[in-house]
Every structure is written in structure tokens, then in C-alpha cells.
């Protein structure tokens, strides 16, 4: 009924609010470290600047080098639009939309890795290899988490699925999903977005050679992905959809803020784990989701 208003509203949330999240994280980190830190809106300034800048393209790169970030950005945006946004709901809801969401994120990963490999740089190859390899374990965790939601809501559609059950299962799921969020968005303890040593990076090293508008697309896409995972996590844990619209919106915003601050705190207080420990951490996230799934299953059968 109000889809004419709701759709632009959703679009605005995803496009305009997403770059706030990295700003908040950086602010939290600065606050913990006792610095003043960059302004919360820093990413907006960066994006505006990058959008006006010229582009330097590797002599080896094909047109796919520019198309990659564009496709990845569209894929993340499309995935985000499938996700219900508290009282605003989802743009489109059908049976199995959650699988489309997962595979849109996979498409984004494919394109990012493709664009990284365009340059023939060993560093970017390394980052791409790590990204797609760790995604194997993260995917197991995400699919398990989605199955859990599906089992406890007896539905395969996102708008009906995000009805959290109270209990210890939800707690396990929250921790598992939070770990996946950190891994998928390449935050500490999996990756350090601030590092400048190419050998140790995952995501940042893949986009080393991007510049100008394509880099803006990459950064904006990464911010949207972070917001997407935060919104998913919050709605998987809090019954946002059941609350009255105003309260739901408030709960969603507060939840996303809490998640963002938590990311910032993790980043400030934890060190990055050694590379050989990353699979262990991801497996732990997977196991948490498995236990959440078993609890949801047992609860459903009883």
C-alpha cells in the first residue's frame, strides 16, 4: 500500500546511512585509544572526493576491472533490498528469497575476487585466495544460521523468518552470526582494515589497485554489507517485526548501534588472530550455529 513511499525510504536507508557505520566504528576505536579520531562522516567525504577523482588502471587489467566493483555493488544493494528493514519491511518477499540473498553476496565476492586478480599482482592474488577460501567456512556457518531461522519459524521467506525465539539458542545464534559478521566484513580478529602490510591483509589488499569512482563503489559496497549483516543479526535476535512501528524502528536502530559499537570495541581490545587460527575461529562460529540449529530443531519437535 505504501510501497511508493517505502521503497525510496528503504533505498535511502541503505544508500545514505550505510557509510555511517565505519565512521562510528572508527570513533569508538579512537575513543578507546584516547584520541579524537576522524569525524563520523569521514567516509562520506572520502566517497565524494573519490567520485570526482580520476582513475588509474593497471596496464594488465581488462574492462572487468571496472565492471567488477560495479557488479559487486549492485549485488550487495540487491541483497540488502531483499532484507526486511524493521517496520519498513522488505521490498519484495517470496519463498526462497533468503537463498537469493546468500548467492547475491556470493556474486559480490566473485566480482571482487575477479577484479583483484585482473591486476596480476601477487598481493591481490593472495587476498582473493584468502577471501574465497575463508568464505567456504563462513558459508557453512551462514547456511546453518539461516536453516536455524527457517526451522524455528517454519518458513523459507525472510520476512517471516526473522521471528526470533527466546532462549539459549538465540544467544548462540547471535554469537555465531556476530563472528560471521566480523569475518565477512574483514574486521578484527580476522583482518585488520587499518593495516598497511600487504602480506597480512584480506579485503584491503584485494582493492589495492582500485582508485577513483570504482574505489568509491568498493568502499560504499563494503559499508552496505556491514549494515546488511548488522540488520540481519539484530532482526535474528530481537523481535523487531512484532513491535509497533515506532518501537520497532527504535529497536532496530539501537540494535545496529550496539552491534557497531561492539565491532569497534572488539577492534580496540582484541588482536588479530594468526592466520592459521582463522579456520578454527570460523569453525567455532559454525559450531555455535549448529548448536543453535539443534536447539531450534528440538524445540520444534517437542
Amino acid at each position: 500500500m505504501n510501497s511508493i513511499i517505502a521503497f525510496p525510504a528503504r533505498l535511502a536507508v541503505w544508500l545514505l546511512l550505510a557509510p555511517l557505520l565505519p565512521g562510528i566504528i572508527n570513533k569508538v576505536k579512537a575513543w578507546v585509544a584516547g584520541r579524537r579520531g576522524p569525524p563520523v562522516l569521514q567516509l562520506y567525504y572520502d566517497l565524494a572526493r573519490l567520485w570526482r577523482k580520476g582513475v588509474v588502471v593497471s596496464t594488465l587489467a581488462s574492462p572487468g576491472f571496472i565492471a567488477g566493483p560495479a557488479v559487486a555493488w549492485v549485488a550487495v544493494l540487491a541483497a540488502a533490498l531483499l532484507l526486511p528493514l524493521g517496520p519498513l519491511g522488505a521490498s519484495l518477499s517470496f519463498r526462497g528469497d533468503v537463498i537469493l540473498l546468500l548467492y547475491l553476496l556470493a556474486l559480490a565476492r566473485f566480482c571482487t575476487a575477479w577484479a583483484a586478480l585482473e591486476t596480476g599482482s601477487a598481493f591481490e592474488g593472495m587476498g582473493a585466495a584468502r577471501e574465497v577460501s575463508f568464505a567456504v567456512l563462513a558459508e557453512a556457518a551462514v547456511v546453518t544460521a539461516v536453516l536455524t531461522l527457517s526451522l524455528q519459524s517454519r518458513s523459507v521467506s525472510l520476512s517471516a523468518m526473522l521471528v526470533p525465539a527466546a532462549g539459549s539458542g538465540t544467544l548462540l545464534l547471535a554469537v555465531g552470526l556476530f563472528t560471521v559478521l566480523l569475518a565477512e566484513n574483514c574486521r578484527v580478529p580476522f583482518d585488520d582494515p587499518n593495516t598497511h602490510l600487504e602480506l597480512t591483509m584480506i579485503h584491503e589488499v584485494m582493492v589495492l589497485d582500485h582508485s577513483g569512482p570504482p574505489l568509491a563503489a568498493v568502499l560504499h559496497g563494503a559499508a552496505m554489507k556491514l549494515l546488511l549483516f548488522s540488520v540481519l543479526l539484530v532482526q535474528a535476535v530481537l523481535p523487531v517485526g512484532k513491535l509497533p512501528p515506532a518501537a520497532g524502528a527504535g529497536a532496530l536502530v539501537a540494535g545496529v548501534l550496539v552491534v557497531t559499537v561492539a565491532v569497534g570495541l572488539v577492534e580496540s581490545l582484541m588482536a588479530r588472530v594468526a592466520f592459521r587460527r582463522v579456520p578454527l575461529l570460523l569453525t567455532t562460529a559454525f559450531l555455535l550455529c549448529v548448536f543453535a540449529l539443534l536447539i531450534a530443531w528440538k524445540g520444534g519437535a517437542a
Partner: peptide, 16 residues
Amino acid sequence: LWLRARANGLRRALTW
């Protein structure tokens, strides 16, 4: 994105 990059000026250089 391709048009925008071209409009801003597109330069070829060695891979970093």
C-alpha cells in the same frame, strides 16, 4: 561506472 571513470580521466599504469 565506466563512463564516470572515463569522464574523470582514465590513466594506465603498472600494477602496484
